[in-house]
């Protein structure tokens, strides 16, 4: 029987949620028995090879590229999980939402005390994707099936959730796994 496939991606996140997944430690060896990883930074596969059962999304959408990748995940994954506060509500990067984008760019590329920028240009070459006016939670861009809160969600939370999903069982998370600092 073919193993179910899992894909993961990091949008406007910090990779901490992916690191938390690695913190399942030796269970990762069990996990690769249970599922095949499709497109994911964990295995370096960069394009979907087919449709997946589960897609894990870290990070919200801060530029047009994030939106594109998120839509791609929705098309290819039956179940989409927003992992962590960034994916669920924009998280820390969304702190820029109350500030005009230009001010953020000016601070980084014009006003900072160590900046050397004789032309005064902020990076804007064609190679760079358009930055969105604010950071969007994933659920404002596509339909999200489940949310796993935390910054990042603990490894055990991720493990329990993925295992429950693979076995088609309801997910019961004890208090310790959903309690945060």
């Amino acid at each position: 029987m073919e193993k179910p496939k899992v894909a993961t991606t990091s949008l406007a996140g910090c990779f901490g949620c992916h690191m938390s997944l690695l913190d399942i430690d030796d269970r990762i060896l069990k996990l690769i028995q249970l599922v095949d990883f499709d497109k994911s930074p964990v295995d370096d596969i960069k394009k979907f090879s087919g449709d997946c059962l589960v897609g894990l999304i870290e990070g919200g959408c801060a530029n047009e590229e994030n939106v594109e990748v998120l839509r791609q995940f929705r098309r290819h994954c039956s179940i989409l999980i927003a992992v962590g506060d960034c994916a669920i509500m924009g998280g820390l990067p969304a702190m820029r939402n109350g500030i005009p984008l230009q001010e953020c760019l000016d601070e980084a590329y014009r006003n900072g005390p160590s900046v050397y920028n004789p032309s005064g240009r902020v990076p804007n070459a064609d190679e760079l994707p358009l930055i969105l006016n604010r950071v969007y939670p994933c659920s404002e861009v596509v339909k999200i099936d489940y949310h796993l809160p935390g910054c990042p969600p603990p490894a055990d939370t991720l493990w329990e959730a993925v295992v429950a999903l693979l076995n088609g069982k309801p997910l019961n998370l004890p208090y310790e796994l959903i309690k945060y600092d």
Binding site: G16, L92, M95, C151
Partner: peptide, 30 residues
């Protein structure tokens, strides 16, 4: 080309200084 931009330098302004060690580490979970 590095194509992501976050804007930390600007959006931490206005926050109390003691938040910095817990806030700014969210730049990088690695």
């Amino acid at each position: 080309h590095v194509i992501e931009f976050r804007g930390f330098e600007r959006f931490v302004q206005g926050r109390p200084y003691w938040e910095m060690p817990v806030l700014v580490q969210r730049l990088c979970g690695i």
